[in-house]
Amino acid sequence: MRAVDDLSFTVDAGRVTGFLGPNGAGKSTTLRMLLGLVRPDTGDATFEGRRYEDLPHPSGQVGAVLEEASFHPGRTGRDHLRVLATAGGHPQSRVADVLEQVDLTPAGGRRVKGYSMGMRQRLAIAAALLGDPEVLILDEPANGLDPPGIRWMRDLLRAQAAQGRAVLVSSHLLSEVSQSADDLVVMSKGVLRAKGPLSQVLGASEGGPVTRVRAADEGALSAALRAAGITAAPDPGGGLVAHGTGTAAVGEAALRGGVALTELVAVSRSLEEAFLELTGTDA
């Protein structure tokens, strides 16, 4: 059985790339291939041209949080980080730094078996940040987090990307990805379905882009659009909706018709609609 087939994409520095797909799509397997934990039959996964295991300082260049975060339950959070800092050749001072960064300093001396799911997730993120890596890979990091935790995670990802890091985050939480990702890679059944900037992937729906436009004189607006060959229908919320036409063409048509606009908005499909369409899954 092929878990992942003919998948190719790149993740850029300074951007959050959402890696989206339904359960069983092959996301986790792909991330584990990136990290050398699973060996692909053919092909390579590289970081600036080098496989993970060939990097001079792997955990200093790539930090990873995998879906099933692994800890010895009898070891304290601080000791868990001490082990990884030592093995990765990172200064021990980083342990206190990352504990502070994920708000776990007070719990650092407690054994992990007493941690909540959210605390374990924070500890896993702290481990990923130990080497101050240029690349962050996170597999379903919002799992088990409460709403404030999810918000915290989203802010963290954005902050990491803003500092120039490449962030690849897998999720099946559609709303979460749409709020934090710049780019999207969508896969289903082990196959790549779409990739590109979020707006591009969302805009690539059947029928093309959708634009909502309003004017004080909607009759004149409707006539101007018709004159430009743009089909528009009344929107139940007010104004007109033009299917298959972007904001630039609608705005230009209104200008030519001498109609003053009060609203001109590109209406994206919801990520959920795009996701269902792209992955071929049922609602």
């Binding site: 990290l35 050398g36 934990l37 993970y52 295991e53 792997p58 955990s59 990873a64 995998l66 099933e68 692994s70 800890f71 082990v83 990884l84 093995a87 990765g88 481990a127």
Partner: peptide, 8 residues
């Protein structure tokens, strides 16, 4: 997993 991520 974390052991081999730190030391592949």
């Amino acid at each position: 997993t974390s052991s081999l991520l730190a030391a592949p």
